[in-house]
Simulated assay, not measured.
Amino acid sequence: MPSLGADMAAGTLVEWLKHPGDEVRRGDIVAVVETDKGAIEVEIFEDGWIGALLVAEGTEVPVGTPLATIVGRDRIEPPPASPPAPVPVLAPPPPPAPSAPRPPSTAREAPKEAPTTAALRASPAARWLAGERGIDLSLVQGTGPGGAIQRADVATFSSRPKHREGIDPAQMRRAIAAAMARSKREIPHYYLSHSFDASAALTFLADYNAARLPADRLLMAALLIRATALALPDFPEFNGFHDGEGFTPSEAIHIGFAIAIRGGGLAAPAIRETGQLALPELMHRLRDLTLRVRRGEFRSSELSDPTVTISSLGERGVDLLLPVIYPPQVAIIGFGTIRQQPWVVDDRIEPRPVMTVTLGADHRANDGHRGALLLGRIAELLQEPHKL
């Protein structure tokens, strides 16, 4: 069971999307787990074949519990389709083995349901209920004679927890409260802010978008994320994790971007390898992430991988924000709205579009001097957006 946030202690395995013997590749979605954040798609991080499923659907287990075994590609042949497992494997049942002819009996025997296929046997009541509830009978484990599917098997299958659409706002709020309370209780926050002229960034966006269709245009958020990703390599003490005993910098930069969820709540899933993405690809990833998160759809790596977080409330008219660090991260960067303000240019005062960037940081991992340099570097990069 992957850890999908500092506040997560357990999760419920609600659906297997792969079965024993299935070939899998890095990045494939293999299961769905349910947490306070909603239904999360669990990705796999190596190539191979599914061995055994160790946790049955509908089971809640602590973080760190093995969910399945994976047979690596060092094997010449894939594993058998149904290896032994300590819990029932939730896969279509195998066809019953042919039985030897029995001698004639004078006892009256109940009539048997003739199977429609060699691999599927189900009673008429089971078929009717499956049709009523839109259930594929091949997914139902039969408990009748010879593995035949009975009405009770279909009823049990339909009552199992499934991949839930969306999230429970009350659960999400409790999860946020737990994480933020822990953050303010345990992390010695300090805050810095820096204001800069955003004229160059706005001009660049206008020129870039003028000749492009709406689907290919950039938003300011893409520039902010890109500038932050390019600044962080020189300030590694702001990109990583503090486990209570010490700070561990992350070589990779996976920027989490805070997104409001419909119905209430907030999530900050990661845009992985942010610094390696050119602006068009970064914008594509951001659009996809925003659409899925607002529907309550997440992937496990997006919640477990962020190394630093950006929160932007400029579209809500907020001048500056003092964000709370999401543990075990050690920094969060906030961007406010762009507002016309008096600005000194060549010894004269002019109206300029001004943006304020803030830093909330963990004093156990870094300090204000370096934090000020980080904010200054982000602002410098945004003065030359054509180089982003």
Results as ranks from 00 to 15, higher is better:
R160H: 11
R174W: 00
H189K: 08
K162H: 13
K162P: 00
R160G: 05
A170Q: 07
M172L: 14
S158Y: 12
R185Q: 14
A170S: 05
S159K: 14
R182H: 13
K184A: 07
A181K: 14
P188T: 08
R173E: 10
R160F: 04
S158P: 02
M180A: 05
R160Y: 02
H189R: 11
E165A: 14
K162D: 07
E165W: 08
R182Y: 10
P169K: 12
E165V: 13
A170D: 05
I176G: 04
H163R: 15
H189L: 10
A175E: 09
H189I: 09
R174P: 01
M172G: 07
I176W: 03
P169D: 06
M172Q: 11
K184R: 14
S183E: 03
A170W: 00
A170T: 08
I167Y: 01
K184G: 02
Y190M: 09
R185L: 07
Q171N: 06
S158C: 05
M180Y: 01
P169V: 04
E186G: 04
E186P: 04
P161R: 14
E165T: 11
H163W: 14
K184C: 02
K184P: 02
A181S: 13
A177M: 04
K162N: 07
R173N: 10
R185F: 03
D168V: 06
I187C: 08
M172K: 07
R174Y: 00
Q171Y: 02
R173S: 15
K162V: 09
R174I: 00
M180D: 02
H163Y: 05
P188E: 10
I167Q: 09
A181Y: 03
A181G: 08
G166M: 07
S159R: 15
G166N: 11
A175N: 10
G166P: 10
R160Q: 14
H163P: 02
A179W: 00
R185P: 01
R182D: 06
P161Y: 12
A177Q: 12
P188L: 10
S159M: 13
M172C: 05
I176N: 03
S158K: 03
R160C: 02
I187K: 09
E165N: 07
I176L: 15
I167H: 15
A177E: 06
A177H: 06
K162G: 15
A179C: 07
K162L: 11
H163N: 12
R185K: 14
G166Y: 09
K162F: 11
R174D: 09
D168K: 10
A170K: 09
S158V: 11
K184N: 02
I176D: 04
A179F: 00
R164F: 06
A170C: 00
R160T: 05
D168H: 09
H189D: 11
P188Y: 12
P161V: 13
P188D: 10
P188K: 09
R182S: 07
A178W: 01
D168P: 06
K184F: 02
M172E: 03
G166I: 10
P169A: 08
S183D: 01
A178I: 04
R160P: 01
H163K: 15
